[in-house]
């Protein structure tokens, strides 16, 4: 055990730096997933057919094994962070799209109708009434996305992506040596810490951006 702490002490700077990279990777991808996902949700929630297609397509992304997707990205995007960000963004879409659609559809129709009756146009209704009311549900989706992506991001090390995955893959390469366990466990713990940080951050952000009237 003390040997593990020695390891952490020795690699401290490394661990922090890799952690920041991991967070950066996930942060960018969550932002992209949220922007694209909300856009898809907003454009499809009203009609059944497009809605179902959006959910089916973003859902099918999640069934592609992450390993395979990362490797498939190489011919297109090379190695390093870019292919990882693209793949993560794809994985992160479903929770955001699904919650955006659910949230918007759950908005009380009487509220929307009275907005309409007061002379708000479609865009005004969406921006000033529907999205703010659906927001707590959307934020929940973003939190799920963040958690999923923090985990999958670790696999990105296979295409030389940054993050705690590098520790885990290093460990994998040295199975049998005493350092292997240390590497894998510290990578895993790092992932957990990043996940907790993201979730807390998003919870606070969600609360700050949700009207007190619907909390």
């Amino acid at each position: 055990m003390s040997e593990f702490f020695d390891f952490l002490g020795r690699r401290y700077d490394d661990l922090i730096e890799v952690g920041l990279e991991h967070m950066y990777l996930v942060g960018i991808s969550v932002l992209l997933s949220t922007a694209i996902g909300v856009f898809i949700g907003v454009t499809t929630y009203r009609t059944e057919r497009p809605r179902e297609i959006a959910l089916a397509v973003t859902g099918s992304f999640l069934t592609i094994p992450s390993f395979a997707l990362f490797i498939l990205m190489i011919p297109i995007m090379g190695i390093g962070a870019p292919p990882v960000i693209v793949a993560l963004t794809m994985y992160g879409l479903l929770p955001v799209v699904r919650n955006t659609i659910t949230g918007l559809r759950e908005v009380d129709q009487a509220t929307v109708e009275s907005a309409k009756g007061m002379g708000m146009g479609r865009t005004q209704r969406l921006v000033r009434i529907e999205l703010p009311l659906a927001w707590p549900v959307i934020v929940t989706g973003v939190r799920v996305t963040a958690l999923v992506l923090v985990g999958i991001a670790a696999v990105g090390a296979i295409v030389d992506g940054p993050g705690y995955g590098t520790f885990i893959f290093d460990g994998l390469a040295r199975v049998g040596s005493p350092a292997a366990i240390n590497l894998v466990v510290s990578g895993m713990l790092g992932v957990i810490v990043v996940a907790i940080l993201f979730d807390t951050l998003l919870a606070v952000l969600g609360k700050l951006t949700t009207s007190r009237g619907i909390q």
Binding site: S114, I129, I214
Partner: peptide, 11 residues
């Protein structure tokens, strides 16, 4: 315009 459910904007 006033409807039965009132439809105040809760947020």
């Amino acid at each position: 315009y006033v409807i039965q459910q009132i439809g105040l904007f809760p947020h």
